[in-house]
């Protein structure tokens, strides 16, 4: 049996998919920024001299790393409003789930990166009178981030793909729109093929860009 591919019905609905892409990109950018920056804060928290701060940061990492994002999104959307008198939009629930989960993962990446820097670098920074924060910002993080860019890139790609999980609370993103188009025209094969292709077309150049950044930062080697 040969299948007659028919992409016509997909392209007729390109506008619906375009809206989905916009929703995906919006969610991606917000979660990328929140997840990566909160991750750094949590990583520093895990290295803090202050015991409660260290303990809370560890708790955060273990909690969000060891529960599924899908469950977190559903929990924020359906459960949190029962506990607290707040209205949570699908967008907000997805941001919370994906960002907090990514923060937990990236915190571990940052921590590993910071720990991989030789103690002599901290000492040299302190020996010229730097504070711990100055040493971190000027000496340690620039070197650590260079080492962890491949891991952070992985994380970023993962965040992009996790955006599809937001469809579970009917947030308008690419997969959600794809489902809609497929159900209108009964053509899941074509639609999901196109959806997968769009992800690839958007992600691949982004990843190539991070390779370029990596090469640029390696110029001092």
């Amino acid at each position: 049996m040969t299948y007659n591919w028919n992409f016509h019905d997909v392209f007729v609905n390109w506008w619906a998919l375009a809206i989905g892409v916009a929703g995906t990109l919006k969610l991606f950018v917000v979660c990328l920024v929140l997840g990566m920056s909160l991750g750094l804060v949590i990583a520093l928290g895990r290295r803090s001299q202050n015991r409660p701060v260290r303990w809370l940061s560890t708790l955060f990492v273990e909690f969000f790393r060891n529960t599924p994002v899908l469950v977190q999104i559903l929990w924020f959307y359906y459960a949190l409003p029962i506990l607290a008198p707040i209205e949570i939009s699908p967008f907000m629930a997805a941001i919370l789930g994906i960002s907090l989960n990514s923060a937990a993962y990236s915190a571990e990446i940052y921590r590993g990166g910071i720990q991989s820097i030789e103690p002599g670098q901290w000492e040299a920074a302190k020996a010229i009178g730097m504070s711990g924060l100055q040493a971190l910002r000027r000496i340690i993080l620039p070197q650590a981030i260079r080492r962890i860019i491949p891991a952070l890139t992985n994380r970023g790609v993962e965040i992009f793909k996790m955006s599809t999980l937001a469809s579970v609370v009917a947030y308008v993103e690419l997969l959600q729109q794809g489902k809609l188009v497929a159900s209108l025209n009964f053509n899941p094969l074509e639609v999901y093929t196109v959806v997968a292709a769009i992800f690839l077309i958007i992600l691949y150049p982004i990843v190539r860009l991070t390779y370029a950044v990596e090469r640029h930062l390696a110029r001092s080697d």
């Binding site: 000492e123 020996a127 000496i139 070197q143 080697d221």
Partner: peptide, 10 residues
């Protein structure tokens, strides 16, 4: 320092 500890990224 014995091992110089220069900042390699500068």
């Amino acid at each position: 320092f014995q091992h110089f500890n220069l900042f390699p990224h500068m």
